[in-house]
């Protein structure tokens, strides 16, 4: 009986711990259903209302900014994923001089922080007149996330026996045919995981978007939300409702990606 009681207590403790950790976000979610008078005594009767969400969806730029973010994310995915798969195959299957050095270069790009690269990019963007271009922003996202994708997919390639390549080549497949018809279907999980991570990182970015996009019509969700907060400092209901909306895609993607995550991060180690 005491055993059982202890078990119940531990589970309860687990819930309490989780609630404490999540309080800041739970608060955001709760208050977003509170309407506009967020600072009314919070412990009074709580009648949820979606008025803040209605306001955000109908009277703010958030829907447009969702679209802008999706365009940048789509561009990032469309560029980084095919290019990373090719490179991953090259590092896994080909032998050539300078491979180690080139691969070292890939690892360096993974560590280059966006904070140190934002000014250099700003200069190049002004050379190339690429400001306010969501596809160009997507290219930048692709560059910052390709190392991760290459590492992840290469790891999968490395775990596929070479015998499979040999069999395909005996059957008359060219290298590219082997890549496309034999190996590509086998690395789908890695490609899926890489895509999810590219999307999350692109969706969450504030730094690059805020310096490479200057026209408010092209703002992504993160920059748009920040601008909205600056312009409507008292409309907490709408600010918090927008926050919840902006979080949904990235939280969903994280839920999908969670089981890959550990493998991704330790992937560079075990190999």
């Amino acid at each position: 009986m005491t055993q059982r009681l202890k078990l119940v207590a531990t589970n309860m403790a687990g819930v309490v711990v989780a609630v404490i950790v999540l309080v800041p976000f739970l608060w955001t979610v709760l208050e977003s259903f509170h309407g506009s008078d967020v600072f009314a005594p919070t412990f009074s009767l709580f009648r949820p209302t979606v008025s803040s969400y209605q306001y955000v969806l109908l009277h703010t730029a958030i829907p447009q900014e969702f679209l802008n973010s999706l365009i940048a994310c789509a561009a990032a995915l469309a560029i980084s994923i095919p290019v990373s798969c090719l490179a991953a195959y090259g590092y896994s299957r080909l032998r050539f001089r300078g491979k180690a050095v080139l691969f070292y270069g890939v690892l360096v790009t993974q560590i280059l922080p966006a904070t140190a690269m934002v000014i250099p990019l700003y200069h190049v963007w002004s050379l190339a007149h690429a400001f306010n271009n969501l596809v160009a922003l997507g290219v930048a996202y692709a560059a910052f996330n390709m190392a991760l994708a290459i590492l992840l997919v290469r790891n999968f390639f490395d775990n596929i026996p070479l015998a499979l390549d040999d069999a395909a080549s005996i059957d008359g497949c060219s290298r590219f045919q082997t890549f496309w018809y034999v190996l590509r279907p086998l690395v789908t999980p890695a490609v899926a995981a890489a895509s999810v991570f590219v999307f999350i990182n692109a969706w969450q970015d504030f730094l690059l978007a805020s310096s490479l996009i200057t026209n408010s019509g092209r703002f992504t969700v993160t920059v748009g939300l920040y601008a909205f907060e600056g312009a409507n400092t008292t409309n907490w209901g709408a600010i918090l409702a927008s926050s919840v909306l902006v979080s949904i895609p990235s939280v969903l993607m994280f839920a999908v990606a969670q089981r890959y995550l550990v493998r991704v991060v330790s992937g560079g180690v075990k190999g």
């Binding site: 989780a18 950790v21 999540l22 800041p24 976000f25 608060w27 955001t28 999350i200 969706w203 969450q204 504030f206 969700v221 993160t222 939300l225 920040y226 907060e229 600010i239 918090l240 926050s243 919840v244 902006v246 979080s247 990235s250 939280v251 993607m253 994280f254 839920a255 969670q258």
Partner: peptide, 17 residues
Amino acid sequence: PLMIIPWAVPGIVAATA
């Protein structure tokens, strides 16, 4: 899965909260 929410929300949302 809920425990990773702080990490999963964009920085601007955490900052707002």
